[in-house]
């Protein structure tokens, strides 16, 4: 029953976020601040992980291609498909649930504990709009992060496969272009956009409605990570079923 209550409360929160708007000039500043914290601040870790995971995918594919009848170009094809379809949009989003999601929950949760949210309400400010709307807008730029992740993942795969001596550069590049379906990119960015909304709102919900003190802020961050990950995985399955099958 509490799950039903929470789901209802979550959608009421979303309604509240798009309710009375904060002054435009203030909102503009908040959106840029959130883009800096949530998006720009994540580029380093996303780039690092993407490059090396791309390399690992290429090496593992290469090491498993024992049959001489299977062309080496498959290394690039397999790396491209796994990075574009799954690794960049979903795996990076799970990592972002840990990084960005925990940040959102703990920052809003701390504001709840220290009565900063009450202070906003007493001033007559729609605290849901003030705190969460800029995060949602900032997360609209999340597909750029995933585009960078896709690019660096493939660069990592290229570096590992070519510099590691598993395949020649020409063969890798030709495999990279084999049977390319543009819709796979559309599919990847549709789910990225949905994940962005999940990443902005579920952690915000856990922070905004938390009760208790500093210890509970930690619990809320953990719970938020778990639920954001679960919802991302389920949504991934549903969207894949709807768009690819």
């Amino acid at each position: 029953m509490s799950y039903v209550y929470s789901i209802g409360e979550y959608f009421l929160m979303i309604k509240g976020v798009f309710g009375r708007m904060t002054k435009r000039a203030v909102l503009k500043e908040l959106i840029f601040k959130e883009i800096n914290e949530l998006i720009i601040g994540s580029l380093g870790i996303v780039s690092f992980i993407s490059f090396f995971i791309g390399g690992v995918v290429a090496i593992q594919t290469a090491l498993n291609l024992n049959n001489p009848l299977i062309p080496k170009a498959l290394i690039a094809f397999a790396a491209r498909q796994s990075i574009i379809l799954e690794f960049a949009p979903t795996f990076i989003s799970i990592i972002m649930a840990g990084k960005v999601g925990s940040f959102i929950t703990s920052s809003i949760g701390s504001m709840r504990v220290t009565e900063q949210i009450d202070a906003l309400e007493v001033m007559g400010i729609n605290s849901l709009n003030y705190l969460i709307f800029p995060k949602i807008i900032a997360m609209l730029t999340y597909p750029f992060v995933i585009a960078i992740s896709m690019f660096l993942g493939i660069v990592g795969a290229y570096a590992a496969a070519v510099l590691g001596g598993f395949v020649g550069s020409d063969i890798f590049l030709s495999g990279l272009q084999d049977n390319f379906d543009g819709f796979h990119l559309v599919y990847a960015f549709i789910k990225t956009f949905i994940f962005a909304m999940i990443l902005a709102t579920i952690p915000a919900y856990h922070g905004y409605y938390m009760k208790g003190g500093a210890l509970e802020v930690g619990h809320a961050s953990t719970t938020s990570f778990v639920w954001t990950s679960v919802v991302i995985i389920i949504t991934n399955y549903v969207v894949t079923q709807l768009l690819l099958s």
Partner: peptide, 8 residues
């Protein structure tokens, strides 16, 4: 507010 509730 009791704790001040200043924005950190």
């Amino acid at each position: 507010f009791q704790g001040g509730a200043l924005f950190d």
